[in-house]
Structures are given as C-alpha cells and as structure tokens.
Amino acid sequence: MSSPVPPGTSVATLRVNGEERTVAFPTHHTLLEVLREELGLTGTKHGCELGECGTCTVLVDGKPVLSCLVLAVEAEGHAVETVEGLQQGNQLHPLQSAFADLGAAQCGYCTPGILMASKALLAENPAASREQIAVALSGNLCRCTGYQKILEAVEWAGRTLCGENAPPARECSFGAPLPEEVQRG
C-alpha cells in the first residue's frame, strides 16, 4: 500500500465478476457489505447476516459461500461471482431464463443466492438429479415458492447446459391432468 490507510480501514482490490475494483472499507466489513455498499452490487441480498438463511450466497473461486460470513479483505486474490455476473452480455444464463419462465423467482429475494448455488452445482454436474439439487440448495431458504419451481428450473437449465432442448413437462405449468373419473364427472 502506497498511501497511508487509517486504522480499521482496508484497501483491497477485489475481482468481482471478472472485473477488478480497488475499494477502501472498514476492515470488519464483510464481503456482503462491501459488495452492496461500496461496489453498488445490490443484487446480493441478506436475510439474517448470521449464516442461517443462505440469501447472501455468492461464489468465491467457483464455490458457493455466504458473503455475510466472509470478510471482504479475505476475498482479495479470489474470484468473486455475484448474480450480476451471471448473464453474458444481454443474454441470460439458462438458469436465469428457466427461473424467469417458471416463476421460480416469486418475490425474487432469495433468488440471487439460489441462482449462485445452482450455478456452482450445475458447473460441477449439469445432470444433477432432483435429490442432488435439493441437497445442494438445502442451505438456501425460500418462503414463496415451496421450492418446486426452483427444482424444475434448475433441472431445465441443467438439460439446456447439456445441449438438450427439453422444457419442463406440461404439468409444471398447468398442473396435473385431472384423473379420468373426475373429467368424466
């Protein structure tokens, strides 16, 4: 560091979504705070700041971590990815398209964290089973969706990443077909 930095303050160069930015912030601030408050990347949300809800999940070196429990200074030298970095240009990531189309984002507040955890999972295993997806996302709470549309969306995105053009079953959007005896009645 060339210029004197006041005590309790850190200056760090963070690589977020492939872009380097040098920022000064209180040393005790977490990556969550620095992303939102210094870098203006408010896509990363928070729900408890104690590591209990998964809302603030971001990727560090490709692995999902809770940004509320990582000091920003400790992220220096690592690749940080947030929801803002998911799309390529104006093109949505298959996860983003699937979440938007299926309504897997209702209020949308847990969505960034779940998208990032899903991205890490699919990067490792795009053909992840429903059970594997549920386990991988089990640290991310959602209060709106009942998780069904999220599971369907991650599966759909996984298929897309595998090169398959296979949208979810009609049942996902229209509900189950009525049993025959009910239709007759």
């Binding site: 896509g43 803002e84 949505l92 983003q96 979440f99 938007a100 189309d101 984002a105 969505t111 998208l115």
Partner: peptide, 11 residues
Amino acid sequence: RRVDGRAKVTG
C-alpha cells in the same frame, strides 16, 4: 413469463 421475471433473476 412474469413481467418482473428478468429483473428478479439479474439482480
């Protein structure tokens, strides 16, 4: 697709 869908998946 919900009209706020894209905004919600892009942050």
